[in-house]
Amino acid sequence: MTMAVAGTETNKGFIDVRDMGVTFGANDDKVVAVENVSLNVQPGEFVSLIGPSGCGKSTLLSIVAGFVKPTLGEARLDGKAITKPGSDRGVVFQQYSLFPWLSVRKNVEFGLKMAGVDQSKRNTTARALLDLAGLLSFENHYPDQLSGGMKQRIGIVRALATSPQVLLMDEPFGALDTQTRVVMQEILTNIWQQFKISVLFITHDIEESIFLSDRIYVMTARPGRIKAEIKVPLPRPRRAEMTDTPEFMNLVQELKGLIREESLAAMAPEIKDRGLSGFGMKVGPKGVGEIF
């Protein structure tokens, strides 16, 4: 029944980013956010982009989404250069982005309405998607009546409603508490397996990226470059128990090492002198104040 919604098992959804460079500001205020990044997402592949905060991973996603133009290089979707946002790329944001004035179902219908799909077809599609998200009984509620996890599930199916070739997700579970997050990851893998579309997933959560992805790109601290590319050989479908297997643990260790170097590098200017030594400092009965 859900396949009726998607109807997309094609070879489409090939994201190709080449020699990308992004610079913000000019002259003295110039900040190089992303430098010389090349990456790709194969059709139907789940790829994560992970890196320390401020490494430009969200900037990269904004470029693929079409919100930001790169300074150098280009991003292509199925060979066509990306210049502006469009419904061929579904985007799920970190912040809740449901329209508060629309009911849950109308939110899911939004993209179809923009595409000129008639009311009854919109309705059927939206209800099928809400059923998939387990939220059909909330179709007439307003977003403000729902919990954060529910809002993000609706955000995901809303992005899927227009049958996009790719799904771009910018730390979609970042605002959720740990337990809801784990559950949402499982839901997402399930949905992804049904739709078989390409996903570019931004996160800073190591376990999350391994659990979800076929492949992970690790980025360096600013200016963001690709530091490593890691394949995740875990079988599909992914199950919560897999996080306890040695393979999973090894991958976590490997990624942790890579990320830690970069996180330290990212924070270096701030913690160069006192901060780093502070990790090992003794705190007396009067607290930190004593040392200064």
């Binding site: 912040q95 982005s97 923009m114």
Partner: peptide
């Protein structure tokens, strides 16, 4: 909230639709 405008644009909203529906 700017994210609503971005969300609408990547759901395919034209400039006119953006005004009317968002």
């Amino acid at each position: 909230d700017g994210v609503l405008i971005r969300a609408a644009r990547c759901l395919g909203a034209s400039e006119f639709r953006l005004f009317l529906n968002v």
